[in-house]
Structure formats: structure tokens, C-alpha cells
């Protein structure tokens, strides 16, 4: 009798395990397939890419598609534009957003946070018409600065959002001790809270960087021929330059490679940071 109960339990355990593995596989399959297909398209010759039935594993791997992307468009220039735009938008967002997140968390001023939510709610397109006019008056159209400035609409709320969540979970005894010892509010922030918040800052910075890097619409409106960011450049390849499927897929990979690498580096912190910010 005891034996049958034990074997029953064992069978149950195995069934559970198989069911779990199957569910994980079903969830991951579509996610992975798109990436696999992108890679496959980028490594095949055009004959294979337009074959029916589709060729899944290239018989002959080629890097011609990647070479073509770099030959026929100034990819390094676009890359540099993206770095400038995203880098400065992220940096300024950190300078303004980390203290703001601290202040809002400590004062429990959630109405202030609502203002930031408002900027997330406003459709990005609605900034464009007035800002376009403004930048034209200022003579900034044709430089990367209008793009960088508008990208702060994306980066600042993310940084504040993440930092509120982070500072709320940080114990405040240390700062209180510093205050009792005669530190000013600013000193308590600068020398006690800030050094402890490095992990939160890293997550906020990287998430802001990724969203800004991926943004298309601001660049699409403000960028001229030489100030295109990476996503805009790729979009133009699709519509205006008649690239074949192989080079297009290769360009898609080139654009998203930096964010994929960043995601892999801090995947654990991303999950923690995003979920901490979501709650209180």
C-alpha cells in the first residue's frame, strides 16, 4: 500500500515536470522563432530568402548582407547619432530624475509622480508639431539636439519611476542617523542614500537608454539625412531604398544588437527594477 502511494506521487511529480517543460516551450517558441527567422534571413543568399518552401537552415552561410548594409549606408554615422542622442538624453534624465525620485519617495508625494504619468500618457506625436515649429525658430533643425531634447520625454519618467520604487524600499535609518549627526538633507542624500542606490541607478539608466535607443517617432520627424538615428535609418531602408530581405534583416540585427547585449547583461536587475517600481 505504502509503495503504491509513493509511486503514485512519483508519477505525479514526473507529469508535473513534463507539463511545466511543455508550457515553457510553448511560451518561448514564438518569441524565439522571430529572432531565429531574423538571423536566418540575414545569413542567407537572396535565392534562399525568396524560395518556397522557405529555407530554414541556410545551406551556405553568407555575411554579404551585413557587408551590404555598411557599404550602402553610412551606418557608423547613424550609430554615432544614436549614441549622442540616447547618451545625452539618459545622462540628463539621471541628473534630474534621481534626486526627483528621491524627493518624491521620501516625501511620499505621489501627486508629483502623477505629473510624470501624464507625460507618458500624452501621445508622442502631439509634442511634435509645436516642438518642430519651436526648433525651426531656434534654428536647431538639422542637428541632433532637438532629437536628444525630445527623447528626455521618454527617459526622464522612466528614471523617476524606477528611482521612486528603489528609494521606497531603501531603509531610511542610515540617513536619519546622518541627519542626527548634523548632515543637511542634501548631504544625507549625496553621501548616504546616493552611494547605496547604485543598483537602482544602473537599472534606471539602462532602461532609459533602451527606450530611447528604440524610439523611432521623434527621430523620424526631426532628423535630416545626416542626423538619422538607427531606427529611422532602418525604416528608410524599408521604404525608400529598395533593399532585399537579406540586407533588411541584417540591418534590423545591427540596430537592436546594443539593446540585446544590454538586456543580457542586466536581465536580473531589469526584472527586479521594473517590478519594484510597479507597486507602491
Amino acid at each position: 500500500m505504502a509503495l503504491t502511494v509513493r509511486t503514485k506521487r512519483k508519477i505525479r511529480k514526473v507529469v508535473d515536470k513534463v507539463a511545466l517543460a511543455a508550457t515553457v516551450a510553448v511560451l518561448l517558441a514564438p518569441c524565439l522563432f522571430v529572432f531565429f527567422w531574423m538571423l536566418s534571413l540575414s545569413l542567407k543568399y537572396d535565392i534562399d530568402n525568396t524560395a518556397w518552401p522557405p529555407v530554414f537552415w541556410p545551406e551556405e552561410v553568407t555575411f554579404d548582407n551585413f557587408a551590404k548594409v555598411f557599404e550602402e549606408s553610412p551606418m557608423f554615422l547613424y550609430f554615432w547619432n544614436s549614441v549622442q542622442v540616447t547618451g545625452s538624453a539618459t545622462l540628463v534624465a539621471l541628473l534630474l530624475g534621481v534626486p526627483a525620485g528621491y524627493g518624491i519617495a521620501k516625501a511620499r508625494a505621489h501627486k508629483m509622480a502623477a505629473v510624470l504619468l501624464l507625460s507618458r500618457m500624452t501621445p508622442g506625436l502631439s509634442y511634435l508639431i509645436p516642438l518642430f515649429t519651436l526648433f525651426q525658430v531656434l534654428g536647431l533643425i538639422g542637428t541632433v539636439w532637438p532629437i536628444a531634447l525630445t527623447h528626455m520625454v521618454i527617459t526622464l519618467p522612466i528614471v523617476v519611476w524606477i528611482m521612486i520604487g528603489f528609494f521606497e524600499t531603501q531603509p531610511h535609518e542610515l540617513e536619519e542617523a546622518a541627519r542626527i549627526d548634523g548632515a543637511t538633507l542634501w548631504q544625507a542624500f549625496r553621501y548616504v542614500a546616493l552611494p547605496l542606490s547604485r543598483p537602482g541607478i544602473v537599472v534606471g539608466a539602462i532602461l532609459a537608454f533602451i527606450s530611447s535607443w528604440n524610439n523611432f517617432i521623434f527621430g523620424a520627424v526631426f532628423a535630416g539625412r545626416t542626423t538619422r538615428t538607427m531606427p529611422v535609418a532602418v525604416y528608410n531602408m524599408l521604404t525608400f531604398e529598395s533593399f532585399a530581405w537579406g540586407p533588411l534583416a541584417a540591418a534590423a540585427i545591427v540596430v537592436m544588437l546594443p539593446v540585446i547585449v544590454l538586456t543580457i547583461i542586466i536581465q536580473k536587475e531589469i526584472v527586479q527594477g521594473l517590478s519594484a517600481g510597479g507597486v507602491k
Binding site: L27, W37, L238, I260, K268
Partner: peptide, 25 residues
């Protein structure tokens, strides 16, 4: 951890680039 990282890849990928691949698919 590994599978979870794979799973969150889509939301990090550049939407314009992803859309390009879907267009072909």
C-alpha cells in the same frame, strides 16, 4: 533565469526592426 531572459527579449528589441521582420513574415 536563462529562459526568463529569453522571454523578455521581445520587449527590449527595437520595435521598428522587429516590425520589419514581421512584415517579411
Amino acid at each position: 533565469g536563462f529562459f526568463r531572459t529569453l522571454f523578455i527579449m521581445p520587449m527590449m528589441a527595437t520595435p521598428v526592426a522587429v516590425s520589419l521582420i514581421w512584415t517579411m513574415m
